[in-house]
Simulated assay, not measured.
Amino acid sequence: MIRQLSLFDMHELYEMEPSNHFEAVFSALNLNPIWALLEKPNKLGAPRELNYGAMVYSLIARVVERIVTMKDLVKRLKRDPIFRYDCGFLHSDQIPSEASYSRMITTISESDVMEQIHDELVLLAIDEGHISEE
């Protein structure tokens, strides 16, 4: 019998340094449907000004860090360079406004990508439950 370990233990997660626990959470999620949705359809023209990948990671970090409002998230990104880096923003990246986050969230919520990610996580949790019972 092969026993698979869980992705990470919640107790261990909260004892990790923020950088490490963000990485543990980010790596456990398959965000490919979101990346495909937000990918610039045409490689020609002006480059995008916002780092959408870092924005998605910062939304996840917002939940982990229990940051209540988007306004608070934007403030934290502006004043905390380590948090900003942990979320994937480069020093040269513009910090998104609340309106930018709102537009991105609208784009994501108007698609079915969150359903896909949710379904995949549920299946992963079920598989882990079956493996730990063996």
Rank of each mutant, 00 (worst) to 15 (best):
L123D: 13
R79T: 14
V113F: 01
L123G: 13
Q94A: 12
W35I: 06
M55K: 01
S102H: 08
P96A: 05
A24C: 13
S100W: 05
H21C: 14
S109T: 12
G88R: 03
P47D: 03
P81I: 07
V63M: 12
P33V: 08
H130D: 11
Y85M: 15
L123T: 07
I34E: 02
D80L: 04
L38F: 04
A24W: 00
M16R: 02
R3G: 12
F8G: 07
M10I: 12
I108Y: 04
R66P: 06
V64K: 01
G88H: 05
S19E: 12
L13P: 12
S111F: 09
T107H: 05
E23C: 09
L38E: 05
R66C: 14
E17N: 08
L50D: 09
I126F: 05
D86F: 11
F89R: 06
V56H: 00
A46D: 10
E110N: 15
P96Q: 02
R103V: 11
I67P: 10
D119K: 06
Y85F: 14
Y57A: 13
Y57S: 14
R79K: 08
P81V: 07
L90C: 10
L31P: 10
L38V: 04
H21D: 13
Q116W: 02
E120L: 13
N32F: 06
A24D: 05
R79M: 11
S102G: 15
S58T: 02
K43H: 06
D9L: 04
R62D: 07
H91F: 08
T106V: 11
E23L: 15
Y14C: 07
L29M: 15
S27V: 04
I34F: 03
P33W: 03
C87R: 03
L31W: 04
A54M: 04
E134N: 09
K71L: 06
Q94N: 08
N32V: 13
